[in-house]
Design a protein around this nucleic acid. Structure first.
Lengths: 253, 253
DNA sequence: TAGATTGTTAATCGATTAACAATC
DNA sequence: TAGATTGTTAATCGATTAACAATC
């Protein structure tokens, strides 16, 4: 019973990257920790930003600050990739940027389909950050015939029935679901059947997928609820109240 | 130097909820683990869904399946809130739903402002999931005068300069940033200065905030890059290749 | 009572962090 | 060489999980 949230996240590989003791500069490694994988794109963005400001070199401290983490964590993370820095000097921005991009897999271009072109789908289709970061939207699909044909960000909305052909012809591996919750599992099943093996899900719906398919979810109202939890704590604390007492009282009401 | 990603996430409270041994039914506790807090909204949604299907009672196994986690984790998570189940029977759906909603803080209504009404801001403003889950959008703000006055989902877009007055009058604690990256830190600073203490950031920009302010970020291209990393692994594995060899070769190129 | 299911324990696993030896 | 900074170690902390005693 693999967690539908992410088959691959759930069944983490383990094996904390034992480095071969001989390889002087670039030891091969397997299984970068999930927490590290999730931060690599943040480092990549920080390096791109440094690069745009024509910074040739940076220390782990500088890069860590730009990425919003502490430097120990940054160095530990980078150590899973190899030894790309120079002691006493720091990191070459361009070189490290390329190495991280290669490790993530965004030196190549990933074709992506977006399913469900409502308000959110429109926003996603118009998002410029895709193309600059290794992704290319190859199609916008919607089940509603009334929407089909409409042009969004230079692409025409097509029928969801074009999915299978598209996935095969364009070798699409990544699908984005921006449909209403009720439609999400069906769409997901079709995507998986067509050969898509990575799904980014914006629908407020738990998806179940077979092993080997990765799902990540982005859920607006969950994020807000997490903030609300902490916010509630803050208000209570600010009121100078004994949290445990208030909580105990509320529970009885 | 607190992590800008989330002051409160970063400096986790610790103290793993020691329960008072006497309290028979509803022991007070402090410091629900962050990982648990992040799952409570998922359980809440699953319970709402069960409730809508008129299910009166459910076991931890059923609820766990609906939420996409395993039942051991679910029971452990719920144990931080109290003892709301009945051994041999399961959980009362309505009762548990209320308890979780109360714990998260969404039995009250949280006023929210959205700043930056571009494509994404439009989508957020039209998102119906807010109101049904304890949040109420009280204002849409944009710095561009050309956008001001436009009606989006029943609310007029107002000037960003209205922020301070709004926050005070409506007691806004939560702000959503949907501006371009370059504007995000300035907007964030204004929000914080105005009194907002929780921020949901959609801009691809690391925000720095003072202690006591929570930031959560939603980053589309980061999510896609995480999927790409795993996808790359899958393609290589499918090719039947020795991953370590390929990686070693690529690194030399 | 017998069967079912919770709440809790304890073992394990993964992530974070500070400190520092290695080395430029 | 002296100063700076990386890459790694080891300790600590937090999260997950299976198993089972408690108890309905």
């Amino acid at each position: 019973m693999s967690s539908p949230r992410s088959a691959r996240n759930g069944g983490s590989d383990g094996s904390s990257a034992k480095r071969t003791p001989d390889a002087g500069a670039k030891p091969a490694e397997r299984g970068i920790p999930e927490a590290t994988v999730a931060r690599l794109p943040v480092y990549l963005r920080a390096l791109t930003s440094l690069s745009e400001r024509s910074t040739a070199t940076c220390s782990s401290e500088e890069l860590a600050t730009a990425a919003g983490v502490n430097s120990a964590k940054l160095r530990k993370d980078l150590s899973y990739l190899g030894s790309y820095g120079t002691r006493g000097v720091g990191y070459d921005v361009e070189y490290l940027r390329y190495q991280i991009a290669r490790e993530i897999g965004v030196t190549q271009d990933w074709p992506v389909v977006i399913v469900g072109i409502g308000n959110l789908g429109h926003a996603l289709a118009n998002y410029s950050g895709f193309s600059s970061r290794g992704f290319r939207i190859v199609a916008l699909l919607d089940a509603d015939p009334a929407r089909q044909g409409e042009d969004v960000g230079g692409l025409g909305i097509r029928s969801f029935d074009d999915l299978e052909q598209l996935v095969e012809e364009q070798r699409v591996a990544i699908g984005v679901i921006a449909t209403p919750a009720q439609a999400a599992q069906d769409v997901c099943d079709r995507l998986v059947a067509a050969g898509v093996t990575s799904i980014l899900n914006f629908a407020p719906q738990v998806l179940s997928v077979p092993d080997g398919v990765d799902v990540r979810k982005v859920d607006l109202s969950i994020e807000l609820q997490i903030l609300a939890y902490h916010e509630q704590r803050k208000s209570l604390a600010e009121a100078g109240a004994d949290l445990e007492t208030i909580d105990a009282i509320e529970k009885v009401i």
